[in-house]
Structure formats: C-alpha cells, structure tokens
C-alpha cells in the first residue's frame, strides 16, 4: 500500500527540516538590498572598483544569487548533492559562453 503519511528517508538526506528564524531571513534581505543599492551606485556614479563596470556588476549579481540560493532557497541545509549538481550546471553554462566567446575573440 502506498504510504503517504511520512516521507521516505535515505542516507544523505538532511536529518530533519531546518527551521530558519524570521530574523535571519530579514537580515539576509537587508544584505540583498544593500548590494542592490551598491550595484546601482557603482553604475550611475561610475565608481567601479575594477576597471570594467560590467565585471563589478556581475560580481555583485553573482553574490546576490548565491545568497538567495543558499539562504532563501535553503541550499545550505539540503543534501550536498544538489549543491554539487548546481555546480555542474553552472560549469556547463560557463563552458557554453566561454567556448562561443573564444570563437568570436579569435576571429
């Protein structure tokens, strides 16, 4: 008989659901807003830390994405497998861009 009262448990699964406190989430949100303000200021006022503003913008955006994934999406509290596979996905995405860009850069 299908057992639908309790969820199946396998080795590697997180032991129990991690409850993230309200305050922690709000703290994360404040951090994200600060990063947003930073990226706008860097762009509008032209005060990039690195030579290219696009690199600064991408560093900030990536930081924000990692924060959202780790804390809002609870990646930090999930099975490590998902983090690894996420890494593979991002790696492939970078390969797609890098190989294609290489063609254009060397033409």
């Amino acid at each position: 008989m299908a057992d639908n009262t309790k969820s199946r448990h396998l080795p590697g699964d997180p032991k129990e659901h991690h409850i993230v406190p309200y305050k922690f989430h709000i703290g994360i949100w404040v951090g994200l807003i600060i990063l947003t303000i930073m990226t706008v200021l860097v762009s509008v006022m032209g005060i990039s830390l690195v030579a290219f503003s696009v690199i600064t913008a991408m560093i900030i955006a990536s930081t924000k994405a990692v924060v959202v994934a780790n804390y809002f999406m609870h990646l930090k509290y999930e099975n490590k497998l998902i983090t690894w596979l996420m890494g593979v996905t991002i790696f492939l995405f970078i390969v797609f861009i890098a190989f294609t860009a290489f063609d254009y850069l060397t033409r």
């Binding site: 990226t39 503003s53 696009v54 913008a57 924000k64 994405a65 959202v68 809002f72």
Partner: peptide, 15 residues
C-alpha cells in the same frame, strides 16, 4: 528573482 538579479544590471546599468 535570481534571473532578474542578472537581467537588471545587464540591461539597466550599462554605464
């Protein structure tokens, strides 16, 4: 949300 995080600087913040 994450996708927007990237779209935003790529379109609005090229300065």
């Amino acid at each position: 949300d994450i996708i927007w995080i990237f779209l935003f600087p790529l379109f609005y913040l090229i300065h």
